[in-house]
Design a protein around this nucleic acid. Structure first.
Length: 408
DNA sequence: GAGGCACCTGATAT
DNA sequence: AATATCAGGTGCC
């Protein structure tokens, strides 16, 4: 018999433009969130299963705690209020709810016409404050890979090497394994068997390297303005073109790990260590840079290390200290997962729901319906089934729009 | 420094 | 149906 304690649902007032979990949890920064029911996302975090729901006014959250079956000599006082406060603090920290996203979007939009054009259909994209170690391994898995398989690989790491936290229905939730859990002599071979490919060696070697460092080595590379939960922030120095000293030091240290190149190091800096100026340049971002920011010619005709730095510096000079955040909004807008489908953006005005389609570049409204249909044809069967309902809503809406057009 | 290739795997496109 | 290409790159020559 497993003893658990299921907390009540609580809510936090958050607008969809300040946070959209349906986009933020699926845009490839965290690989562990699972859909636990219709419109509910869950993940094991800090010894509990955290579940999130969202409507247009509130973020709803709940924690499920495991309860040890062997009672301790002096059971710690665990009244529910303490845990609720703890979970609220955890959520505010993990979801990085402090910054005002509308202000940030406005700032990036005023500095950059392309951002101004693309971002309105992708509001509420927030950079999560993830555990640095988990981010490190997750992004080592990401090389030459897709989000779906990365998520499957991370799940395998958790199931085989991470602690079991609990269940929702029949679905087990494991936390992410510690470095030392991945240093066993057969880990690499086992991961190969599990389908990790050449990343098996990277993960094993990086786990050994990190486990041999002094405790807290990775978190010592954090942006002091963005410390771990419970520590007071400190200033992080002056922002310069290539990023602050602490960022560049963190990046350099990470590069020494196997399977960590400039792109993975930047992902860890941005999403695990709190360095907002970190701009990961991958194939998507490189394409965006060529398409929308005049890269791809002359000296920077291919994505070399020099070009990588040039692109990152360009975005830092354009968007400033949180350039990596702005970059993630455009990255998300470019993801195939979100292309041609309804963005999880629902504006509620006087009880009238206005559903927006993306591809704002296509100005003519008569073509929007057609665009939606074409994108449906491109989808895989599973994607289609997942999103069918939403796509139908798009078609309804666009139909309505075109009807309105005919009237006017 | 820059260029070129091999590298695991599973899904999708042709 | 077999084969090429792609997916949030990195290591090594």
């Amino acid at each position: 018999m497993i003893h658990i304690r299921i907390g009540d649902w609580h809510k936090l007032p958050v607008s969809l433009s300040e946070l959209c979990i349906n986009t933020t949890l699926r845009c490839g920064q965290s690989f562990r969130w699972k859909k636990s029911s219709e419109d509910e996302w869950s993940m094991a975090l800090h010894g509990r299963i955290l579940s999130l729901r969202q409507d247009s006014e509130y973020l709803h959250y709940r924690a499920i705690f495991p309860k040890p079956t062997n009672s301790l000599p002096t059971p710690p006082p665990s009244n529910s209020e303490v845990d609720e406060d703890d979970t609220l603090a955890l959520i505010k920290h993990y979801l990085n709810l402090e910054p005002n996203l509308a202000d940030l979007y406005a700032q990036w939009a005023s500095a950059d016409p392309n951002f101004k054009k693309k971002a309105p259909n992708f509001t509420g994209v927030r950079i999560l404050k993830q555990d640095a170690w988990e981010a490190l391994i997750g992004f080592i898995c990401s090389s030459n890979n897709n989000i779906s398989r990365i998520s499957q690989m991370v799940e395998k790491l958790c199931v085989h090497y991470g602690p079991l936290i609990g269940h929702i229905g029949t679905q087990a939730y494991h936390d992410f394994p510690s470095p030392s859990a991945l240093t066993g002599p057969k880990v690499e071979q086992h991961l190969r068997q599990l389908g990790f490919g050449y990343r098996a060696g990277y993960i094993y070697q990086t786990a050994v390297a990190v486990a041999q460092k002094e405790k807290g080595w990775l978190d010592a590379l954090r942006n002091p303005e963005s410390p771990v939960l419970g520590i007071d922030p400190k200033p992080a120095g002056e922002m310069i073109e290539g990023g602050r000293d602490g960022y560049r030091r963190a990046h350099e240290e990470l590069l020494a790990l196997k399977g960590v190149g400039p792109k993975v190091a930047d992902c860890v800096c941005l999403m695990g260590l709190g360095w907002g100026e970190s701009v990961p340049v991958d194939t998507h971002v490189w394409q965006i840079a060529q398409r929308d920011y005049k890269f791809g010619k002359g000296k920077n005709s291919s994505l070399t290390k020099a070009t990588y730095d040039a692109v990152a510096n360009k975005f830092r000079s354009l968007w400033g200290k949180e350039a990596g955040w702005a970059h993630s909004v455009l990255f998300t807008a470019d993801l195939k997962t979100f292309s041609g489908r309804l963005v999880a953006k629902v504006e509620v005005k006087d009880e009238v729901k206005i559903l927006k389609t993306e591809n704002e570049g296509l100005v003519k409204e008569e073509t929007i319906t057609e665009t939606a249909v074409v994108s449906v044809k491109k989808k895989t069967k599973r994607e289609f089934e997942e999103e069918e309902e939403q796509v139908l809503k798009v078609e309804e809406t666009t139909t309505r729009k075109s009807k309105r057009r005919k009237i006017t």
